[in-house]
Simulated assay, not measured.
Amino acid sequence: MDDERSTAANAQLALLLEVSGTPKPGNVDREREYDDLRFEHFMAGAVGARDGLELATEGTPVGRAFERAVAGMSQQRGGNTQFGALLLVTPLVAAATQGHLSRQGARNVVANTTVDDAVNFYRAFDHVDVAVDDPPTGMEPLDVRQGSDAEPALRDRDMTLEDVMEASATEDGIAAEWTDGFGRTFEAAHGLTQSNGPVTNRASALFLALLASEVDTFVVTQHDAETALEVRDRAQAVLDGDEDPYELAAEFIERDINPGTTADIVAGALFIALERGLSV
């Protein structure tokens, strides 16, 4: 880690670098944005998240730190800018603070979560609207869209934040990272440290590589599995030289196709790489 930059600052910088990379087909970047979700909103979201990220470096339980980061992030007019990225980065910040920024260190953070952490995770949904699927039949009391109203059900079932993530891991790419030691994120971070050029260019190249390697679960939620498969295959076509990434980016923005899970993993990878000495 840069001696002049704290762990919380690296987390904030990771959010800023992620949104600054271009092109990232379907996602807001420094050249493309939606009418109601703009580049400036992501800048403000990263600034607002800083207090919660600082809490994670001070030993505050990860659920509370995440909820505070989301609360701060929400203080801009675009709404949900970095919910998923913060859900990925916050436990990594905690692991780094404990001196174990590794897959095992991240697993330890997850394993040590509590019911209170789960309650605070749900409270984060009080601050912003997050696109999620309907819960399975019988699981309605645990619908995350209930926000803090779900607290009695969480406590009745004695569900930790690890338990919550395990329940969603097959449908949600960020929850899957939580239950698998953040494998894709650490692998992506290694790729960043081995590449060359401006970090924002490396981040956009990583985005395309990740998008081509696996279906983006947010696209499945936002649209459907067929659209997500199309997105994956067309990202591969960009890598193969058969499609222009800038044209694809414009098309996905027009179609409101937003591969948000992939962007979240890029943010997490940037944080790990910065902590490991990636120079900016």
Score class of each variant (00 low, 15 high):
residue 234 R to M: 10
residue 165 M to C: 06
residue 30 R to P: 06
residue 60 T to G: 02
residue 82 Q to A: 05
residue 68 R to G: 04
residue 171 E to S: 15
residue 243 E to F: 04
residue 152 P to Y: 10
residue 205 A to F: 00
residue 69 A to Q: 03
residue 179 T to P: 04
residue 111 A to G: 09
residue 119 V to C: 13
residue 5 R to G: 01
residue 2 D to L: 08
residue 88 L to S: 12
residue 148 S to V: 09
residue 109 V to G: 07
residue 144 V to I: 15
residue 223 H to L: 09
residue 176 A to Q: 03
residue 200 T to M: 00
residue 175 A to N: 00
residue 110 V to I: 15
residue 269 A to H: 08
residue 90 T to W: 01
residue 204 S to G: 05
residue 41 H to I: 01
residue 104 Q to E: 14
residue 139 M to F: 14
residue 77 R to A: 15
residue 117 D to P: 11
residue 8 A to Q: 05
residue 99 G to H: 06
residue 110 V to R: 09
residue 106 A to E: 04
residue 167 A to D: 00
residue 239 L to M: 14
residue 270 L to H: 03
residue 56 A to D: 02
residue 118 A to K: 15
residue 121 F to I: 13
residue 217 T to W: 10
residue 178 W to L: 07
residue 176 A to G: 02
residue 28 V to E: 01
residue 56 A to R: 05
residue 131 A to E: 09
residue 88 L to T: 05
residue 166 E to M: 14
residue 93 V to M: 07
residue 190 H to G: 10
residue 259 P to I: 09
residue 79 G to A: 07
residue 125 F to A: 13
residue 115 V to L: 08
residue 152 P to E: 13
residue 53 L to E: 02
residue 45 G to P: 03
residue 122 Y to I: 12
residue 196 N to L: 02
residue 48 G to F: 02
residue 58 E to Y: 00
residue 127 H to G: 03
residue 21 G to M: 08
residue 54 E to Q: 14
residue 217 T to G: 10
residue 93 V to C: 06
residue 81 T to V: 10
residue 247 E to F: 09
residue 178 W to D: 04
residue 143 D to I: 09
residue 251 E to W: 13
residue 163 D to Q: 05
residue 92 L to A: 03
residue 77 R to V: 03
residue 172 D to G: 15
residue 271 F to Q: 00
residue 208 L to M: 14
residue 118 A to N: 10
residue 155 R to C: 13
residue 95 A to V: 02
residue 89 V to Y: 01
residue 32 R to Q: 05
residue 104 Q to M: 07
residue 154 L to W: 03
residue 43 M to Y: 01
residue 73 M to Y: 05
residue 21 G to Q: 08
residue 46 A to E: 08
residue 95 A to N: 06
residue 93 V to E: 03
residue 108 N to G: 09
residue 221 T to S: 06
residue 54 E to H: 00
residue 196 N to S: 12
residue 115 V to A: 14
residue 105 G to V: 07
residue 150 A to P: 11
residue 72 G to K: 07
residue 23 P to A: 12
residue 91 P to T: 04
residue 64 R to W: 01
residue 1 M to C: 02
residue 83 F to A: 04
residue 277 G to I: 10
residue 169 A to Y: 11
residue 102 S to W: 04
residue 45 G to E: 04
residue 268 G to S: 08
residue 265 I to G: 04
residue 216 D to A: 12
residue 52 G to M: 07
residue 128 V to S: 08
residue 88 L to M: 11
residue 118 A to I: 11
residue 244 D to L: 10
residue 113 T to F: 09
residue 229 L to P: 02
residue 4 E to V: 01
residue 73 M to A: 12
residue 142 L to I: 13
residue 37 L to F: 04
residue 193 T to E: 06
residue 44 A to N: 11
residue 111 A to T: 08
residue 87 L to W: 10
residue 158 D to N: 14
residue 192 L to C: 01
residue 24 K to P: 03
residue 123 R to D: 06
residue 165 M to F: 12
residue 48 G to Q: 05
residue 69 A to Y: 00
residue 134 D to W: 08
residue 108 N to D: 13
residue 240 D to Q: 13
residue 209 A to R: 10
residue 13 L to S: 12
residue 219 V to I: 09
residue 150 A to Q: 10
residue 217 T to S: 14
residue 203 A to C: 06
residue 106 A to D: 03
residue 155 R to K: 07
residue 21 G to E: 08
residue 243 E to G: 08
residue 273 A to Q: 04
residue 54 E to I: 11
residue 157 R to H: 07
residue 279 S to M: 07
residue 50 R to E: 09
residue 168 S to C: 13
residue 141 P to W: 11
